[in-house]
Design a protein around this nucleic acid. Sequence first.
DNA 1: TTGTATGCGTTATCAG
DNA 2: CTGATAACGCATACAA
Lengths: 336, 336
Amino acid sequence: MSVTTKDVARVAGVSVATVSRYLNGHNVLDENREKIEQAIKQLGFRVNPIAQTLRTNRSMTVAVLVPTLANIFSMSIIESIERCLDQYGYSIMVCGSRGELAREEEKLRFVRDKRVDGVIVIPVGSSGSHIAEIVGDDIPVVLIDRVVDDVRFDAVVVDNTNAAYHAVEQLIIKGHRRIAMIAGPQHIYTARERLKGYRRVMSDYGLAIDEDLVLVGDYTSDTAYGLVKELMQRDPRPTAVFVSNYEMTIGAIGCLNELGIRIPEELSVIGFDHLDLSSVVKPPLAVVAQPRDEIGRKAAELLYARMSGDTTSFPSLIRLKTRFIQGSSIAEHKSG
Amino acid sequence: MSVTTKDVARVAGVSVATVSRYLNGHNVLDENREKIEQAIKQLGFRVNPIAQTLRTNRSMTVAVLVPTLANIFSMSIIESIERCLDQYGYSIMVCGSRGELAREEEKLRFVRDKRVDGVIVIPVGSSGSHIAEIVGDDIPVVLIDRVVDDVRFDAVVVDNTNAAYHAVEQLIIKGHRRIAMIAGPQHIYTARERLKGYRRVMSDYGLAIDEDLVLVGDYTSDTAYGLVKELMQRDPRPTAVFVSNYEMTIGAIGCLNELGIRIPEELSVIGFDHLDLSSVVKPPLAVVAQPRDEIGRKAAELLYARMSGDTTSFPSLIRLKTRFIQGSSIAEHKSG
DNA sequence: TTGTATGCGTTATCAG
DNA sequence: CTGATAACGCATACAA
């Protein structure tokens, strides 16, 4: 079938052990080295990574497990992870948990069985005990985007609370008082943090929060569409709204366009996460932009360090800053 | 370390061969079956897929190779492929070629060495000889989005030519004559096909094509931004423009917004590929929508059939239809 | 430094 | 139907 070390050994006139040593960078007589290289080229030999893995329990592969694949946030991150790890000779295996715990567990078991050397995961819930249990001490784990509260893992997240804080602060500074928020599902870490930022800044400025203006969605476009529709029926209306993730921003903008509500004259808007949006929406939308590439890169670097045996300051929580894109979707509000 | 068939055999009081047979669904004495199941549960045994692959050369894994990961089109497709193949017990391994031939070849070799059972690829170029050469007869291949012209592969594409044809036809019907097109890089199949559709419909309606209105971009947002800027300096201006992929549509809209050009009063616009856009842009953008889920699903089904030994009507070219989303970005044009 | 021999966890062959 | 055993391709302990 395919050419093996045995073939190379035969052609080179050495033993398979010598060939193996050559392949793994050990010392080999120059004379033998040449004969082996010659044989490898002549035969078109490529080492069989499966056999290697069986033998060594190392696969030079890391798993990336995310709730949903078809989502720009996940994919940008996955791409930057792949780019980074590629340099170190690692390849990645992507899995989707679809936001289901059972699926997350299953995939975790699956990749563990595949002998991946590390895993990067956006956990579906706020518990991580199953992760520890399944891949536990065997395999390094780096969480991204969300942390869990029952197990200590390395993690790379953004400063969601302050991201929301500063966004809403912009609105307050411009004179807004009736500021609505389209929040995310509270079982998700990022959603909780972002809502916390909203509450904190309102409180810091001594503003009362009208709970009728805090609508909790599920991070999907359709739901946000409905929530914004509902929101605009409040009397009096809010003068500004902060939407706390990408999909919901899409739904919100769509709804506002459909209702014919002028941005920012009738309503100031701050979206989340997607830069493209800023330019496509008219007027250019103010958005909180996450450093996606950096998230992926940092996570990959950290995981690589762990896989290489470096346990410095474990567990380390890397908290990255977001960037606020000004846009033109925020108006001055002259309070009465 | 981990528990093996040998352990199961020992505990169950049978031979490893019998355990293996049980695992593979062969006939086993009921009595033994029970003992084995008991032992498996007791020991928490899980079969080692690496060893299986080494032995059988089957990995129950398919590779998906795309030019760029961080792109909604790729990802939606990858997700639907994963969903579909998951049902059959296959998992997927995704790789990015970054639009580079050398990288495509390298990844192909890599997954071949990993013993994947099939590969789905969006080829970077219009030649596929390297694909045939590397994974050749060994492994079934299904192309998506683009076909190659020197090798016969199964493929799932959309009817790009007619997609463009019908889009531009809408403009013509509404009275437009000076219709511009932001085309894609002509070394890419889809870009060629879409431009062909434009030319064909113009010709079918007896309209001369002003080559100054046909601008060739590279499927990126930034370039399209510049091209549209250039386009709007033409004198006389076009009255309509057809933008032929997602990223370029983003750039085009961004540019038009910035220039303050009103859609559709000053310029009618048709975009490509992204449904979200339709609602977020004001007014709702007319777009050509690709059946992403279907593309992934069909490709996965076809590959599954091939992997199962079904060679019916090889090579089969599945050509899916796009959908035209009307929007409100097309105005009637009263010609002089 | 090199070769020999053994094992990684399965599957497949071949007697029984 | 079952058991013993030989691969699969590679890496490593050990002896030389």
